[in-house]
Write a protein that binds this DNA or RNA. Structure first.
Lengths: 221, 221
DNA sequence: ATTAATGTAAGATAAATTCCTACATTATGA
DNA sequence: TCATAATGTAGGAATTTATCTTACATTAAT
């Protein structure tokens, strides 16, 4: 009988950590040997015990996940690192992978994907979320530090973004035009171009897009 | 032997949900009878099954937690609502409590606190994170004894809110009409009535209003 | 039982959007 | 560096949408 994969959990949400621990311990192949909510304490833990895989959240107090990963690598611990986070921000993933993480799983993922990811990185192989792997591998390999493929700050021109912000807030084209001292026609052009660039056909999709990229103002109380 | 407390889980992070489910099911007093990652599906679930407590995350796709809570209340489901979130933003907590949540637990909390919270709200009593309870109780009691005068759930009719949601998401009147199987004219009437009720003159003000009251869907990653 | 609110919708008119085209002015890549 | 793509700007005509007004049946409330 082969031995279980020893896991350390690092996530600052205690109740979720507890659930995750149970989830993993419930599987015959895994055993959680340590857990912590704090980046610095991860390093302390590694002094005390050995484990095969570290499942780490990028956002933790004291020492962020990224920093922690770098430190682990620079100290030469042989532990495999699997990043578990809710951001699917490509920037973060790339940074984490470059820093020495072997794999990346979103919190949105289901349990089975987590299990597979743990096993994969435990074998020393990379694991990337299927959704991101294509893009990521490309951008990791080509080493182009450009932002995510549909990021508004790379895809849309400044003026277009400006117009977008007004439009999605319910301003009509003419109103937007007035706000920005542009002809309605110009606003129209921007809108058309944005739709083309983003491959959209409905105004509501533009709103979705703006929502996705936080282009709407924060809730004002 | 008294029956277990039936729980529905609503959190968009599947792997965490799985852990949480195991954590709760592991306790003799609880049983998770349903789970979902989506605000709208919470409502669908409530149609299908009955449960005692809904544990809900505030940030979910399609329909944010706040909106979802309000809708549950407006539909009159007797389920007790416990908010589980990582934000310790007082504003959010207040809003959630005002909207009808009975309790609030941070994801940072340990499992035992979660258990206590579930039991507390199940009895119909409020549960507030010890850290926040002081502040909150105060501001809940002093600052807002009344439903805020322009709350959409007191001012607007259900159908009006429905229409509003589509309109502010960039759907045209005709599109909204199609979505809701209404004549454009009917949609028009609702819009006009809402504007009158709220004393607004511009569509953009409607969007602001929706933004203020979380009537837009949460950012979908 | 009468009024107020709600859910529904049509017609005529006014306004906004769409589609196509156009043209300087930068960037930018070959 | 020279062609080409991207950007910022806008007009006209055709079409779609929105607005304003009015209407009516059904509940909810007083």
């Amino acid at each position: 009988m082969k031995s279980k994969i020893k896991i350390i959990l690092a996530d600052d949400h205690a109740v979720l950590r507890a659930g995750l621990k149970l989830l993993l311990n419930n599987e015959p192949d895994f055993i959680v040997v340590g857990e912590t909510s704090d980046g610095e304490k991860v390093l302390a833990l590694l002094e005390e015990l050995t484990a095969d895989v570290l499942i780490i959240d990028l956002s933790m107090p004291n020492m962020g996940g990224l920093e922690c990963i770098k430190e682990i690598k620079s100290r030469g611990y042989p532990i495999k690192i699997l990043v578990l986070t809710m951001y699917e921000d490509e920037q973060y993933i790339k940074e984490a992978m470059r820093s020495g993480a072997l794999g990346y799983v979103e919190k949105h993922a289901v349990d089975t994907e987590l299990f597979i990811a743990v096993k994969t990185v435990n074998m020393g192989q990379r694991y990337l979320n299927p959704h991101n792997s294509q893009l990521l591998l490309n951008s990791l390999l080509t080493n182009t530090p450009k932002e995510s493929a549909d990021d508004p700050y790379t895809l849309l021109s400044p003026r277009e973004r400006e117009v977008l912000k007004y439009m999605v807030r319910g301003y009509s084209m003419s109103q937007t035009g007035k706000m920005l001292c542009l002809s309605v026609k110009t606003v129209d052009t921007y809108k058309t171009r944005m739709m083309e660039k983003l491959g959209l056909t409905e105004k509501s999709q533009l709103v979705d897009y703006a929502l996705k990229y936080d282009l709407l103002p924060a809730k004002s109380e």
